[in-house]
Amino acid sequence: MKTPLGTVFGLGSARTGTEHWWLQRVTAIANIPLVLFLIAFILWHLGADRATLMASVKHPLIAIALALSFLSILWHMRLGMQVVIEDYVHGRWRIVCLLVNAFFTIALGVAALYAILSLSFGA
């Protein structure tokens, strides 16, 4: 994504800066209701046993809200950590850190989705 002004003048790195900035805001806005839901979900299940948690996640809306929460939060996390890495890590370690950032957030996301689906469809 480029800004219209950037396109007109042919300026900028012509890469992903604007899109990164924009997605950080989009996921930030999505995170507000999703994180509030997540806090309520956690509080509701303080000290609960597995059967209680499972009964909750079996509800489609709960499962969908949980999945959306993790997707949005982890996406936001990856974008944020990328900025931190680009600010502080130089040289060859930068690409290593960026790769670890990608792998870490995607792995956590897949694990969370697996757990949600397993609880939602499992016995």
Binding site: I42, R50, M81, V84, L108, A111, A112, A115, G122
Partner: peptide
């Protein structure tokens, strides 16, 4: 932001534990 980045491991662990047993 960075603390939350690593803190969410606890949340995923919590859900994974429920999925396991």
């Amino acid at each position: 932001g960075m603390a939350l980045y690593f803190g969410i491991i606890l949340l995923v662990w919590w859900l994974m534990a429920a999925a396991i047993s």
